[in-house]
């Protein structure tokens, strides 16, 4: 795999390599953040000095189905010792799927000084690099965040309905079986927590994992990504695109790819995703089975 700088990304600085992270473990201006799908991974061992941001506990409102607000975000940033000037570097399991989700939430609060470690936890482990179970403590900071801005990179159901009417592109990043609405093979199984299967009308199927190299979790080159999103699906960098999955986690990965690696300027993540759409009364659904 070529170095990050040689892969033709629109914004290559948003990625750092495992080498870079290893060289910056003691950099006081850098905070390494692990964010995983599996809550047991961080306590089982993590990059030395890395803090954990847990999607459920740290980024979600405990009552509403929504993300935290400004005061909770400020508390989180203080707890993990981050200032406005700190470069936060996310990594995690599932080829950085949850790392990009946390990255996306951080962008709702305007912390643009943020990066993703290419390859995530998988690559770090495969390279035999050090992991520790020691949980670091950093001095609390005074972090003043802006109000959460849901207007630029987040989409809501009503906006998706308008999007459909305008025949603008949607990207469904779930598995092909989820996209088609194919019934699961065992009877009486709940279908991904929703009452209806299928996809939002007009959505194109581009499973999120196609953007990564499965062997080491690194992102594919810009040429490879363009072949998928533009060559196969006909998307253009100027398109107004909404991506979705089940709860917005996998689609944050595709949002990241389109926005930072391919330089698309108008991509939003519909975090209500299929768990909202497939349970909503009267919204249109397409099914391919």
């Amino acid at each position: 795999m070529p170095d990050i700088a040689e892969r033709g990304y629109a914004k290559p600085d948003v990625l750092v390599s495992t080498d870079w992270v290893a060289e910056n473990l003691n950099n006081p201006n850098v905070r390494i953040i692990e964010s995983n799908e599996d809550p047991l991974l961080y306590p089982s061992g993590h990059i030395p000095g890395a803090v954990q941001v847990d999607w459920t506990r740290d980024l979600n409102d405990p009552v509403l189905r929504d993300y935290i607000q400004k005061p909770q975000f400020e508390t989180l940033m203080s707890r993990i010792g981050v200032t406005k000037d700190t470069t936060v570097v996310f990594y995690g399991d599932k080829n950085n799927w949850w790392a990009t989700y946390a990255f996306w939430v951080f962008q709702l609060f305007g912390h643009t000084n943020a990066k993703i470690m290419d390859g995530g936890r998988l690559k770090w482990e495969k390279e035999g690099r050090e992991l520790t179970r020691e949980v670091p403590q950093y001095p609390p900071t005074q972090y003043v965040a802006p109000e959460r801005d849901d207007t630029k990179i987040r989409a809501f159901r009503a906006q998706v309905l308008e999007h459909i009417k305008a025949q603008k592109p949607l990207v469904d990043v779930r598995s092909p079986q989820e996209y088609t609405g194919e019934l699961l093979h065992m009877p009486n199984y709940p279908q991904e927590g929703t009452l209806r299967g299928g996809h939002i009308p007009g959505a194109q199927s581009v499973p999120w994992a196609r953007a990564v190299n499965p062997d080491d979790g690194t992102f594919k080159t810009s040429d490879e990504l363009r072949a998928i999103y533009e060559g196969e699906k006909g998307l253009k960098p100027t398109d107004d695109i909404i991506a979705y999955c089940r709860i917005g986690e996998r689609s944050s990965h595709s949002w990241f790819v389109l926005t930072y690696l391919l330089g698309y300027n108008n991509v939003r993540n519909y975090d209500g995703s299929w768990t909202e759409w497939g349970n909503s009364v009267g919204v249109p659904i397409e099914k391919n089975v």
Partner: peptide, 18 residues
């Protein structure tokens, strides 16, 4: 795993029990 297990994670684990 505790009540705070993420929705998708919980569903996957419940699928094993199922």
């Amino acid at each position: 795993f505790g009540r705070e297990v993420a929705m998708g994670k919980g569903q996957g684990l419940m699928g094993i029990v199922n």
